[in-house]
Design a protein around this nucleic acid. Structure first.
Lengths: 182, 182
DNA sequence: AGACAAACGGGATGCCCGTCCCGTATCTTC
DNA sequence: GAAGATACGGGACGGGCATCCCGTTTGTCT
């Protein structure tokens, strides 16, 4: 692969990340090309379809989430690790409209896209959830998909990083609701 | 207004309701016209833009929600009425993709559209919420917009009426989380 | 029943978008 | 430094959509 080709590929990835983050899955390819400072042809040569580009970005973000989950699991107890990861997902989603779109699962199947990469959100979240449930810190009758949906609700509150206090309130409600019933 | 014009207007409204419900805000005007059994011209004569048609449908749905809220408020206590309405919103949203899109508030501002109609969800929900909070049945630090966001999360779980059990689980989590802290 | 106005259908129009293509520019290798 | 391959830019193309328009049909009123 030629050096300029690799450079441009990186530029496209960075620009696409920012564009998807600020405008969501709907940004036009032309806007991404403009932000990257390349032609639209260069974008579609490196990524044959817009969907492929979006998927690449989302999987990158999934890796970040998976890394964070691993960190939390290593340095905190079951309940704390789960709570921290939930809050982390919501914060990331609020700042990244593209990630929020992926997590809301409307028209794009993150789970299918991430299958086999080891960075599937539902798998990663499921592991933390299972540990917290075994420790008796989270009610046992919910699954990872339930939690993902609740997280997407929290993300909807205060999109774009605005109204951080409201976002935290909704997270607090969900975490309280997830405690085992007395 | 001519009789056939009023008939067609009704046909369009019914078809649009069904089309938005099953496919969301993104359905094409042509699809709505097809379902109504009229030409696209008839649709846009009665509703100058697709947005205007969508708004009409959403406001209709808001009226239904407001009516249900009134009923619950009349025949149940503060906490029960609030819980029932929350569950009702989620059930309605799960069956109506168009309503779900409106409630998620991504690209369409229900609150602004319903302002002054007396059927604004946030107002209606806010009234039930305030009553439940005063009775000490719901924690006092959340507002109606918080609840709306949490509801949209529940709707996201089991869209299209599928997986009703999962939907009920998420509602239960939210209701538990909304109880005053012990 | 006849005449006029109102409404209809669906094709025409213009816009935006993703993808493909090709003449031109740039990099790499010998 | 020259030759060949590789990648670039951005316009061309095709498709989908909302909206507009106009020749035709239908309802209404006298």
């Amino acid at each position: 692969m030629r050096a300029d080709a690799r450079r441009n590929r990186e530029k496209v990835l960075r620009a696409a990340y920012e564009a998807f983050a600020s405008e969501g899955r709907g940004v036009s390819v032309q806007e991404i090309a403009r932000r990257a400072g390349v032609g639209t042809g260069t974008v579609s040569r490196h990524f044959p379809t817009k969907e492929a580009l979006y998927e690449a970005i989302v999987l990158d973000r999934m890796e970040v989430l998976a890394g964070a989950a691993e960190g939390f699991a290593a340095e905190r107890g079951p309940g704390e690790a789960f709570s921290a990861f939930l809050g982390f997902m919501v914060d990331e989603g609020a700042l990244d409209h593209g990630l929020a779109d992926a997590l809301s699962g409307d028209g794009f199947d993150v789970v299918a896209a991430a299958r086999g990469t080891g960075h599937d959100v539902v798998e990663v979240l499921g592991a933390l959830l299972a540990r917290a449930q075994e420790a008796g810190e989270v009610r046992g009758d919910v699954d990872a998909a339930d939690v993902k949906a609740l997280v997407s609700g929290c993300i909807a509150r205060g999109r774009g990083g605005a109204d951080e206090a409201a976002r935290r309130r909704t997270v607090a409600v969900v975490l309280d609701g997830l405690r085992p019933r007395a």
